[in-house]
Amino acid sequence: MSFGTGGLFLNESVAIARLFQELGDWSAVKRVASEQAVIPFKKQSSVTRSVREIANRLEVLRPEEMELLAHGEYHNQLSVLWLALCRGYRFIGEFATELVSERFLSFRTHLTYDDFDAFYAAKAEWEPDLEQISVSTREKLRQVLFRLMREGGILSKDDHICRALLSPVFTNLISASDPKEIRFFPGAEPAGQKGD
């Protein structure tokens, strides 16, 4: 539940992915990215925290996914970042598959803060750690998650779930690694199933 920093950080994530390809070591990447001010914040503590957050997200990516983030087209970069969030944060992955994708399939595409709260409460019944999180932190996480979904193209500006339009390149990557991860993307179909 430590995804409460900033937004999707697309440009910064691309820069950090390229640094990782160059340096091959996450400790070095975090140090160099902080020194080079890859993230344009005035406070060094904010830069360091954000670089660490982005690196943590990207560490879950496979080399081909990192390559697509570093040098792919814009919509593929967004898809890779959403994949990284869903993989890196179990709560986001479960929210994407159990709530967002299911709602999309049942044609109830408007998503509200109340939907988040109900999902969170249901999860907290089984995860005591979630109950320990303060209301103010939960509200911040909710706000950040909705922002991430809007920036990633999962939600429209008026909070309607958007059908994921994934490229064949990205869909093939998912199918090769873990076909179940296609469920992170509302309405997406595994490779080879379009039009079947």
Results as ranks from 00 to 15, higher is better:
68 L>G: 01
69 L>I: 09
69 L>H: 09
69 L>S: 00
69 L>E: 05
69 L>M: 07
69 L>C: 00
70 A>V: 02
70 A>N: 04
71 H>S: 11
71 H>K: 13
72 G>V: 15
72 G>M: 15
72 G>K: 15
73 E>Q: 14
73 E>A: 15
75 H>C: 01
76 N>D: 15
77 Q>L: 00
77 Q>H: 03
78 L>G: 02
78 L>T: 07
78 L>V: 06
78 L>C: 10
79 S>T: 10
79 S>I: 07
80 V>Q: 12
82 W>N: 08
82 W>H: 12
83 L>D: 07
85 L>M: 09
85 L>A: 04
86 C>N: 09
87 R>Q: 14
88 G>L: 09
88 G>P: 05
88 G>N: 10
88 G>W: 02
88 G>Q: 06
88 G>F: 09
89 Y>L: 03
89 Y>C: 03
90 R>N: 06
90 R>A: 00
90 R>S: 03
92 I>F: 03
93 G>S: 10
93 G>N: 06
93 G>R: 09
94 E>H: 13
94 E>S: 11
94 E>C: 08
95 F>M: 08
95 F>P: 08
95 F>Y: 12
95 F>N: 01
96 A>I: 00
97 T>L: 05
98 E>M: 05
99 L>C: 03
99 L>A: 03
100 V>R: 05
101 S>E: 13
101 S>Y: 08
101 S>K: 04
101 S>N: 14
102 E>I: 12
102 E>Q: 13
104 F>P: 03
104 F>A: 03
106 S>F: 04
107 F>C: 12
108 R>G: 00
109 T>W: 10
109 T>V: 12
109 T>I: 12
110 H>S: 05
110 H>Y: 07
111 L>D: 00
111 L>C: 08
111 L>R: 01
112 T>Q: 11
112 T>A: 03
112 T>N: 03
113 Y>D: 09
113 Y>V: 10
113 Y>I: 05
114 D>N: 14
115 D>C: 02
115 D>R: 05
115 D>I: 01
116 F>P: 01
116 F>V: 04
117 D>A: 12
118 A>K: 11
118 A>P: 02
118 A>S: 08
119 F>E: 00
120 Y>V: 08
120 Y>F: 04
121 A>T: 11
121 A>Y: 06
121 A>C: 04
121 A>N: 07
121 A>D: 08
123 K>L: 02
124 A>K: 01
125 E>H: 14
125 E>N: 14
127 E>G: 03
127 E>N: 15
127 E>K: 15
128 P>R: 08
128 P>S: 08
128 P>D: 02
129 D>H: 10
129 D>C: 06
129 D>L: 14
130 L>N: 06
130 L>M: 09
131 E>K: 15
132 Q>W: 04
132 Q>A: 15
132 Q>H: 13
132 Q>S: 14
132 Q>K: 15
132 Q>N: 10
134 S>E: 09
134 S>P: 01
135 V>K: 13
135 V>Y: 08
135 V>S: 11
135 V>Q: 13
135 V>T: 13
136 S>C: 01
136 S>M: 12
137 T>L: 05
137 T>Y: 07
138 R>F: 04
138 R>H: 06
140 K>I: 09
143 Q>K: 06
